[in-house]
Write a protein that binds this DNA or RNA. Sequence first.
DNA 1: CCTACCGATCGGTAGG
DNA 2: CCTACCGATCGGTAGG
Lengths: 189, 189
Amino acid sequence: MSKTNKQKILEAAATLFKEKGYVETSMRDLAQHIGLKASSLYNHISSKQEILQLICISSADKFTQHINNLHQQPITPVEKLTELVRFHIQTAMEDTTSVISFTDVWRHLEKEDLQQFIDNRRQYENSFKEIIVDGIDQGHFVNIHPDIALQTILSAVHWIYDWYRPTRSISRQELETNILTLVLQGMQR
Amino acid sequence: MSKTNKQKILEAAATLFKEKGYVETSMRDLAQHIGLKASSLYNHISSKQEILQLICISSADKFTQHINNLHQQPITPVEKLTELVRFHIQTAMEDTTSVISFTDVWRHLEKEDLQQFIDNRRQYENSFKEIIVDGIDQGHFVNIHPDIALQTILSAVHWIYDWYRPTRSISRQELETNILTLVLQGMQR
DNA sequence: CCTACCGATCGGTAGG
DNA sequence: CCTACCGATCGGTAGG
């Protein structure tokens, strides 16, 4: 079972949005990368905006599914937070386009699509925050403002893709260990 | 002494780049906000790219000057790091356009301008990193990878403007205290 | 400072 | 799937 043309379009678009940005990627660019003319794209998608929406919702789903799974597991808030940070770092390295769509590219969504995405992300943030609040209530974390902790941790993991390049000087394991040290030692009492 | 037209153009452009983005801001938009026609802008600047370059270099200078001053003061690495975080938070709240230019808008620079900006920012990051390294060497900080600590702290403070809205629920003082707790407790042994 | 205008490029459609 | 083409908009220039 091979990829549908629509899948090819979405994957190529996600890559181009990552490399050049949404506005700077033209439908002609995109078509050329798949070996089509621009007008042929419209047999598979209805607009550039629809491409953006499908990409952004798909990336949001990836993070939402992970945190929903995590939520059901019988582990401590500290373990959940550890796994969350680990997952964000892994995704930053193995699926950069999802991270970029989730953190940056979505800003070009419009109207209902934009609102839907913001609602999705809000839900994700609330689930994340719940873990922090649980950790505070159970005495594992210092009495920090949950929203500030949430956003600070999210910023730290969301922008890894922007600066991290796998080199000899920093291994992925080292990255994970160090960020976990910073975040967890910063929060634990 | 009133503002020159060039200053007015740069300030209006920085605001528009913040609100809409560089590509999405047309020279016609910009001109209209100052009460001119687009063609008249070119009596004061040579191109849209020149506007971008002046804005980005100016914002980089703001951060560079601060860290250079800090570097000369006879205080501990912990105190220096505290002041750096404090300054970034203050700038995020009082001079958002500078933060956005320094963290995001610069990506639209081209060729030599882009290289010059990257060099400037590299210098800033090196000065910042030096403080972290001093703190580790003097035994104040845990033995963390300086580059990871640097980028994690920078991410945390750079994206405050993106999520923080001054409301009753989080005061600026609270923001400062909580982020400092997270970062400093995360790094101190 | 303006009017008038340039070539290039954009997202998207018609029609086969 | 393509060719041909649309109106809109872009950064920038000529010329006064």
